[in-house]
Design a protein around this nucleic acid. Structure first.
Lengths: 304, 304
DNA sequence: GCGGAGGCCTAGAAAATCTAGGTGTCAGAT
DNA sequence: ATCTGACACCTAGATTTTCTAGGCCTCCGC
C-alpha cells in the first residue's frame, strides 16, 4: 500500500493505435500499410497490448484475424477517441500555422486539373502556402492533416461535406494524326492502334465499349499506366487511343492537341468531388479556397 | 507530389501528453511530477511539439510559464481527447479482467477503515480480486484505472458521483492510562502530554482548540506523523494525545483501547466520501461493492 | 547579495519500437 | 496431391524515441 503510488500507467499509445488499425482492417498487413510499418511491428504492439490487458483481442487464423467479442466491443470507443485526438491536434496545428492549406487529391486530378490552376490560385490567395499531396484514396481527415480533398466519388460520404464539382463523361481521344487513320469511308473504326489504360481506371474502356455496343474491340489489351497523366502523355505522343475522362482531357480537346475519336460520350457514375471535413467547415480560408475551386470548376465545365 | 504519400504523421503522443499536463498545471515541474519523469523530459517534449507545430505554446518566464493564446485555446480539446482515450482504455481493461476491482483511498481510510473490512469484503465477493492503492489526492478517474475512491472531501465533485458516507467529528483521544493523569479534581486538563499531529491534517488540533476556546493549549508543538495511522499507533502506545477523527478511531473507543479526553465533539466540514466515476456507474460489480461500502459505513456509524 | 525555485541545455543512458529474415498454416490454383 | 501466395508468428539486433544527470541562468523574496 504505497503512499506514493507507482502510477498505473496506460498502455503505450502506439499499441492502442496498432490495435485500432488492425481491428478496423481486420488485418495486420493492412494496418501495417496504414501505419507505415512492417506487419511484424503491428503484431508485436498488439501482443504487448494483449499482455497488458491480460487477454486476447484477436483470434488468429492462419488466414487473417478476427476480433474477439471484447475486442469488437472496445473498438468504437477507441476509434472515436483517436479521431478526437487527431482532430484536436489538427485544430491546434492549423491555428499555429494560420496561412497554410493542405490539399489531398487523386493524382490525376492533382496533375491535370489542380496543377494548371495552382499559379492562379496562389496569385488569388497571396501569402497562403498551398500544399498538394497526391494519393489514391481520400485520407481520413480526422487523423491526417488535410484541409480538403479532390477525388472521384460516386456517393457522398458521411462525416465529410461532399460537393460534386461536375458530372464526368468518357470519350475516346487521340491525336489528330491518329484520328485520320481511323476514318474509313466516313466511318470511324477503333482498330489498329493500342488502347492506353490507366491501372486504377482499368475498366473505363470496357465501360465505354459496353455502352456503345462495340464488342468487337478488345478492351483488355494495351499498355497500362499507373498514372492517368502518363497514359495521357502517351496519347499526346501519338502512341494510341486513350479513354478520356472529359473533365481531365477537356483542355487538350480545346487546344486541339487531342480529338474525340467518337462523338459518343458515356456518362460516368462517379465524378470529381470536393471533400470538406466537417471540422474545417467554419475555417475561413478553407471556405474561400473551396469556393474558388468550385467556381473554377464550373467555369471549366462551361467550355465542354 | 508523391503518389505513395509520406504520411504526415501526428506529433508523438508523449509530447501531447506532456503539453497537456504542463498546460493544466501551468508548470513543468508539476507536470513532471504527474507524469513521473524529470522536468527536463517535459521541457524537451514540449519543445519538440512546438517545433512540430512551428510556434510557441508557452511563454517562459524565469518563474513559471504561461500559455500563449494558441496554447490556451488548444488545451480543452486536447484534455477532452485524452480523457476519452483513457476512458476507452479503462473500459476495455475492465472488460477483459471482469472480476478485478481497484480502489483508490486516502492512506488513513485505507488503513483504518478499509483494511479491517477487507477480509469480510473478500468473503462477500468471492472470486473478485480487490486491490487497494493509497494516495493523498483522489486520482483522475478518467485517466487512471481505479473503480472507486475513498477520500475526505468537503464538496461533491463534478464528473464523479460523490456519496458522503458519514459526518465526521474531532475529539481528542488517548489511552485510559493517560486519561487518568489528565483528571485534576474532576476536571480534565490537556496538559503534560505531547499532542500528536498528522502532517496532512495539521490543523485538526487548532480547529478543535479554537472551537472549544481552549487557547491556553499550544496546537503547534508535538511530533508529526506523515501517516495518520502512525499518529494513531503512537497514541495507542501512550505517547500522547491524538486529535481523533471519530470515523477512524471509533473501533478503539469501542474496544476501550482509547478514551475520549473530552466530551466535546467538533464537527468537521469534510467527511469520508465514496467516489464513483460516472463511466463506471452502470458497472454491476462496482455498484455492488459501492453499496457494500455504504452499508458497512452506516453500520459503523450507528456504533458511535 | 544569497538561496531557492523554476526553466534550459547537452550528452549519454535506457527504453521503446521497428526491421529483417526465417517458420508455420491454410486456401485456392495447377 | 502439390504448389504457391497470403497471412500471421518469432527472435535478434538496429534504430529511434525518450529520459536522466548534472550544470547553467534568471528572477524573486529575504
Amino acid at each position: 500500500m504505497a503512499v506514493d503510488p507507482p502510477k498505473l500507467r496506460l498502455p503505450p499509445y502506439t499499441a492502442l493505435r496498432a490495435f485500432e488499425a488492425a481491428a478496423r482492417h481486420s488485418s495486420f498487413v493492412a494496418a501495417a500499410r496504414e501505419l507505415c510499418v512492417t506487419p511484424a511491428a503491428v503484431a508485436q504492439q498488439v501482443k504487448a497490448l494483449e499482455a497488458w490487458l491480460g487477454g486476447a483481442l484477436f483470434e488468429r487464423h492462419s488466414k487473417g484475424i478476427a476480433l474477439t467479442p471484447q475486442g469488437r466491443h472496445a473498438r468504437p470507443a477507441l476509434s472515436a477517441a483517436m479521431d478526437q485526438m487527431g482532430l484536436a491536434v489538427q485544430n491546434l496545428r492549423s491555428e499555429m500555422r494560420g496561412s497554410e492549406l493542405h490539399i489531398a487529391a487523386l493524382p490525376a486530378l492533382a496533375q491535370l486539373w489542380l496543377s494548371p490552376r495552382l499559379r492562379r490560385l496562389r496569385q488569388d490567395f497571396p501569402g497562403v502556402q498551398i500544399s498538394v499531396t497526391a494519393m489514391e484514396e481520400p485520407p481520413n481527415f480526422k487523423r491526417e492533416p488535410f484541409d480538403m480533398g479532390l477525388f472521384y466519388l460516386d456517393a457522398p460520404r458521411k462525416d465529410v461535406r461532399t460537393v460534386a464539382l461536375a458530372k464526368d463523361h468518357l470519350l475516346p481521344v487521340c491525336t489528330p494524326k491518329i484520328l485520320k487513320t481511323l476514318r474509313v469511308k466516313g466511318k470511324i473504326r477503333l482498330h489498329g492502334h493500342p488502347l492506353l489504360h490507366d491501372t486504377v481506371w482499368d475498366d473505363d474502356w470496357a465501360r465505354w465499349l459496353d455502352a456503345t455496343s462495340m464488342h468487337e474491340v478488345d478492351a483488355t489489351t494495351g499498355p497500362q499506366f499507373s498514372l492517368y497523366s502518363m497514359a495521357l502523355q502517351a496519347a499526346l505522343d501519338g502512341e494510341g487511343l486513350l479513354m478520356g475522362r472529359e473533365c481531365l482531357v477537356a483542355p487538350y480537346l480545346t487546344s486541339g492537341k487531342l480529338r474525340a475519336a467518337s462523338p459518343i460520350r458515356v456518362p460516368l457514375p462517379t465524378g470529381p468531388n470536393l471533400l470538406l471535413p466537417a471540422h474545417r467547415a467554419d475555417h475561413k480560408l478553407t471556405q474561400q479556397i473551396a469556393n474558388w475551386i468550385q467556381m473554377s470548376f464550373s467555369e471549366a465545365a462551361s467550355t465542354f
